[in-house]
Design a protein around this nucleic acid. Structure first.
Lengths: 133, 133
DNA sequence: CTGTATCCTGGGCGATACTG
DNA sequence: CAGTATCGCCCAGGATACAG
């Protein structure tokens, strides 16, 4: 399932979407494809125990607004990728940590990042070629 | 680089974005995260020689509009993931084919799909739990 | 059959102000 | 410090019509 050998026969139309739970696939890729999720996941990964407080994450991600950090963290928590712990202090302290699930997602994600590092130059070249035609 | 061991010291803020070409990372994830790109790539992969004509791809992707198929294919071509060949016939025939570059992207992508297949149930469970609080 | 050209809507996201 | 609330812009993407 999902192997990449060359076929010699055309596929049954809609085979793809029957075998793969298209809703779940699209859902994840939409999440991961949004503007900030991956940066948050990768940032948390850098901290000891994959754990950091709100403001610490914020400082590691230039350009993110407070609102989007809150929203994206909340979504990640909802999906079970990140856990959230509130400390009843003043001033308040909230710590976020990658869950086991979140950590497992980072592996395939890292593969994608490696691909980017290896191939982004070729992509840019292709774009330039295409644009000047 | 990009390893996943636990750190014992907090990261240098903005380390992430210095080491990874954030523009390129975000660019790819935005593409891959759009509504149709992956389905198109996975569809082409199913055909002999990773090659199919416009209408054949269309039939394999329920719900895609003609416009979005055209637009997304054009973007993929611009990025060098897909090549396009026009046959001067009537009625016209146009064939699209995964390039070498496009095929290499499918490997990390497949890892992500496998993750979805393995974990989407747990994600849904987490969502239900979160929502009823 | 394989496109292009318009129009239109929803929602992602930023800016800003306010709160416990 | 770590949020909410509100407003408004922009643009991905759907519907529809037309063209080579």
């Amino acid at each position: 399932m999902g192997k990449r050998e060359n076929r010699t026969k055309p596929p049954d139309p809609a085979t793809l979407c029957k075998s793969k739970d298209p809703a779940a696939v699209r859902e994840l890729l939409t999440k991961v494809g949004d503007k900030w999720s991956i940066f948050i996941l990768l940032t948390l990964e850098m901290f000891p125990d994959c754990r950091a407080r709100f403001s610490a994450v914020e400082k590691c991600i230039p350009g993110i607004s407070q609102k989007m950090l809150t929203v994206t963290l909340r979504n990640l928590e909802r999906d079970g990728m990140v856990s959230r712990e509130i400390f009843p202090e003043v001033p308040p302290r909230v710590e976020y940590q990658l869950t086991k699930l979140g950590e497992t997602l980072l592996e395939p994600l890292q593969a994608l990042l490696d691909w980017v590092n290896a191939n982004s130059e070729q992509v840019r070249k292709s774009q330039r070629l295409f644009d000047q035609k």
